[in-house]
């Protein structure tokens, strides 16, 4: 399974990328989209909403199931991906390109709590062996 090694991950299968301008981009991982299957609905947070780390802030729904998405780090919602309302299947096509939302005024210290590539890989392996 391909996992980009420049991102940070959560145990709950979100990815986050810190951009050069200090904002952060958030999505769900390839593993998460595989688990859920064909995506049919995405509910993103309102722009301007202030999120705490770990707060429930979005919902992705596949044909099979609904899943909560949690904010990997604290920040204020600066943008949501406008493509996903009409084309949620973009998450299935490329989970690392189809971002859900962007945060500004992020708490960069929260990044320290997240998983790097190797640690996330380990989580996936242990899930597979369960």
């Amino acid at each position: 399974m391909s996992i980009p090694n420049d991102l940070k991950y959560t145990k709950s299968h979100e990815w986050v990328r810190l951009e050069d301008d200090g904002t952060a981009t958030i999505g769900i991982t390839q593993h998460a989209q595989e688990l859920l299957g064909d995506m049919v609905f995405v509910e993103t947070p309102k722009v301007g909403r202030k999120l705490k780390q770990g707060e429930e802030c979005a919902v992705v729904e596949s044909v099979k199931a609904a899943a909560d998405v949690y904010a990997p780090i604290a920040g204020e919602v600066a943008a949501v991906n406008p493509d996903l309302e009409s084309a949620p299947e973009k998450i299935n096509q490329d989970a690392y390109a189809a971002w859900l939302f962007k945060l500004k005024s992020v708490n960069a210290a929260d990044l320290a709590n997240l998983l790097d590539y190797a640690a996330y890989q380990k989580i996936l392996e242990s899930e597979e062996n369960q």
């Binding site: 299968h13 769900i28 998460a32 099979k64 199931a65 609904a66 899943a67 909560d68 949690y70």
Partner: peptide, 10 residues
């Protein structure tokens, strides 16, 4: 991300 409903996952 966490599963809220998963009818097939008994």
């Amino acid at each position: 991300m966490s599963h809220m409903t998963s009818p097939f996952f008994l």
